[in-house]
């Protein structure tokens, strides 16, 4: 069990982590997502699939308020995103861990500084359990790379570091956008294993991917729900996967 600080997930949660009702997003008059109705239960594991450009990243960006829905209702962690101030958004993001395909690190800081950054910006460094942090680093297999700069790591190491940074605040929700997109199959499996372990710790996980082999592998290990985006709609995928 990897725990760096005490997180909100330790409280029993029953309300959906994410709740979308007739939600949609359009850009320059073009619908990217329309009429999305979805409840994401706490502790659930979701895959979001669909062809490139179908709106997977847009969906995830809505989930961490990098975008706001242009229609309908979106509630995240019991908060309606309409009318949220920038400070509120920052506060909610501290409860959401995001893993991007390109990782998004601050390149002049060491991996140690990058991974602990969520704690630093939220003023919770004093709560850092050092042995817990070392466990986290060991869990992602990066103990030997803490002084390295992000540019000195391989793609797989960077992706694992991004995962460590995403969970360092013990978030309620983990969003991963094509986390295995740049990785070979062996490394992709390793990342998937880490995400499944996080889910078993009670985290809600949503992974956007077009890698069906990854989804099939996951489904054999975890009770995952697969959502497919087609024609701007989010649908539950059938057994055809």
């Amino acid at each position: 069990m990897v725990k760096v600080i005490e997180g909100d997930q330790d409280k029993i949660r029953s309300e959906p982590v994410l709740q979308l009702q007739e939600a949609g997003f359009s850009y320059s008059g073009r619908d990217i997502l329309a009429n999305v109705n979805l409840d994401v239960a706490p502790g659930s594991f979701h895959f979001l699939t669909g062809p490139s450009g179908s709106g997977k990243t847009t969906f995830l960006r809505l989930c961490y308020q990098a975008l706001m829905p242009t229609r309908g209702t979106l509630r995240i962690l019991d908060r309606d995103v309409r009318g949220l101030e920038r400070e509120d958004i920052a506060q909610i993001r501290r409860r959401i861990g995001v893993v991007h395909q390109d990782c998004k690190f601050v390149d002049h800081l060491s991996m140690y500084e990058n991974i602990r950054m969520p704690l630093q910006v939220s003023g919770r460094m004093a709560e850092l359990d050092d042995s817990g942090f070392q466990d986290l680093i060991a869990w992602v297999g990066l103990s030997a790379h803490m002084d390295a700069l992000p540019t000195e790591l391989s793609s797989g190491e960077r992706q694992r570091a991004a995962l460590a940074r995403a969970v360092v605040m013990s978030p309620d929700l983990i969003l991963a956008d094509e986390p295995t997109g740049n990785l070979d199959w062996k490394m992709a499996q390793k990342i998937l294993t880490l995400l499944i372990e996080l889910n078993k710790m009670g985290k809600t996980v949503i992974i956007a991917t077009h890698d069906l082999q990854l989804i099939r592998t996951a489904k054999s290990q975890v009770n995952a729900r697969v959502l497919r985006i087609a024609n701007n709609q989010v649908q539950l995928a059938g057994a055809d996967l």
Partner: peptide
């Protein structure tokens, strides 16, 4: 990156 990890303005 700072905004992504929850930094306030």
């Amino acid at each position: 990156v700072l905004r992504l990890v929850g930094a306030r303005d």
